[in-house]
Design a protein around this nucleic acid. Structure first.
Lengths: 338, 338
DNA sequence: TTGAAAGCGCTAACAC
DNA sequence: GTGTTAGCGCTTTCAA
């Protein structure tokens, strides 16, 4: 085990004290230009790269921003993560990502683990954390931004949109297109609370107009194109009269679309397929689905900016809710995004 | 600023010394069962979650595994990351992700930053790092696994496949299908060395059989379905005689496919489209592309396992190359994966 | 089995 | 402008 370079090595090489070396490397005021050069050069010469552990422990703050997302199985959360990364770029803060697989216990453990690194702030997906998790976050005494939802009670700030409303609006848009016989295809509804909220909003809107879901299928696993194809086949086999299917997301809807194209079912004439997210893939697809275009990247960027702001104006009122409601695209007419 | 709980608080609450508390929480040997219980309970009562900064600084090792990938813009690297995450689960190690945007300077900075957290190991994408970066990694004195490639000289271990070979094999498969008039569509070739290697291998195979690319288009930005559509339109406008197009990845190929379907160009009869990766989306797609099915998740898992192994058998020969060569699917006959 | 002392590598606070 | 001193919260060592 080769001995790692420390500040003392740099200081020795530059012929100054440890403190001057520290200040020079961090760009502190009150260091002579000569010494800054000497120290920088010495650091480069010996290949010094510091020790964040010691620095953060000593200064009692780290430049880490924890970002907790439920999954990486489709492109949605990577896009949120990209937004966060971009907004943090050049600020001296860096994101650290955790993945919960939609498991509240895992989420709790990941957050504990993140907190033990003393992050400067935390970005967490969703508003429906169990009480114990909320307490953990509230007691952490750092800015917390919850993202991707706004139906609920945020701990500090939140950036997202109402899934209930999104489901509701999609139902209304489809009703306005004179659809009357609705089906639903979903995945992972027991764990993905936001997908469940969309279904709930969709149902509410239907019932308000004296309609209802004629049939609904779902399963426990993660959504995928393959699952969408399979569940759509199942649904339409039992209910060929449907003229509209709402899917819990675009992955499933694309699977449904593939099935319908292969099965010779005319889309959207015979059946309208409606997904959620507005993924890039559906643009230019040979066949159109309706969808709600969500602003994933923007949500990531905005949440990071809120953390940065509340870090600057420390202890300001950091209660803040930013709503970036999705816009509906009916596909046949409008164009998707991203 | 509320005072954070420390080990001393736990020790006080449990009525033991700081040291006993530390040992109990870490599951050290030689702590009485009574004290283990008392300390655990005390920790839970006061909501203690430790300080990794202090622990890692003191013990001179962290449980972090740095994972550096070039981008999050398509699903490929998130899948690699999932593989790493899964393999690390329950081992006490946790991944920390960094994104370079295919920029070598950014990669260098990210690696320096990661090293300053004293990770236990590093997983880095690609074999073509600049010399300075290689030196940084070699001097770090921790296990380094380079992934997604094996055309080159690994620092320690590598897990991936030959992109040259992959391009070559695809060309041969297409030649075997009696294709003769080849075009190429790529993105980001100046930065994505692996895509460039595939093109190179493809060309080599063509030339060995006295063929060549009739036309080639590429552009600098990231690949996307949209870019694939646009570049394919451009390519075919100038060269309607092409009977085969090789794309630098599936995103572009899917874009090309969408264009051809809309333009009424019969796929694969008139033109065969060949991509790379074997994304889930192309399965069940209304139209078939050929592709090389890469094992992203497996590469992530394997690389993490190699890190873990070389951490156990410390200082063993950690030189190791695992090749997970993609398999070719011609689409019309076989089925994609993932 | 437990505790006391020393120190990981750095920075804050204060002297010079 | 620069150096000195005293920790940050933990774990390692060694003594009891």
């Amino acid at each position: 085990m080769k001995k790692r370079k420390t500040l003392i090595d740099v200081a020795a090489a530059a012929g100054v004290s440890k403190m001057t070396a520290s200040r020079a490397l961090r760009g502190d005021k009150d260091v002579s230009q000569t010494n800054i050069e000497k120290v920088r050069q010495a650091a480069r010469d010996i290949g010094y790269y510091g020790n964040h552990l010691a620095a953060s422990l000593s200064s009692k703050r780290s430049d880490l921003i924890g970002v907790v997302v439920p999954g990486l199985s489709n492109i949605v959360y990577p896009q949120v993560m990209s937004g966060v990364t971009d907004a943090l770029m050049g600020t001296g803060f860096q994101p650290v990502f955790g993945v919960t697989d939609y498991d509240p216990d895992k989420e709790y453990e990941i957050l504990r683990s993140m907190l033990s690194w003393r992050p400067a702030g935390l970005i967490v997906t969703g508003l429906d954390q169990p009480l114990e998790t909320r307490k953990l976050l509230a007691d952490a005494d750092i800015p917390v931004v919850q993202i991707m939802d706004c139906d609920g009670d945020p701990i500090d700030a939140c950036v997202g949109f109402s899934h209930t409303q999104a489901g509701l609006e999609m139902a209304e848009a489809l009703l306005a297109e004179s659809r009357t016989r609705f089906g639903y295809v979903g995945c992972n509804l027991d764990k993905d609370h936001r997908a469940a909220k969309r279904k709930e909003g969709f149902l509410q809107a239907l019932r308000k107009r004296q309609f209802d879901l004629i049939a609904s299928v779902d399963e426990q696993g993660l959504s995928s194109v393959e699952a969408g194809r399979r569940l759509t086949a199942e649904l339409l086999a039992g209910h060929p009269e449907l003229d509209c299917i709402y899917f819990s997301n675009d992955d499933l809807a694309v699977g449904g679309l593939c099935y319908c194209i292969d099965a010779g079912i005319s889309i959207p004439t015979k059946v309208v397929l409606a997904g959620f997210n507005g993924l890039g893939i559906i643009e230019g697809f040979p066949g159109k689905i309706a969808t709600s275009i969500t602003l994933r990247r923007e949500i990531g960027e905005t949440s990071a900016r809120i953390i940065l702001e509340s870090l600057e104006n420390s202890e300001e009122e950091k209660q803040k809710t930013v709503v970036l409601q999705p816009t509906i695209s009916l596909g046949a007419l409008a164009k998707g995004e991203n």
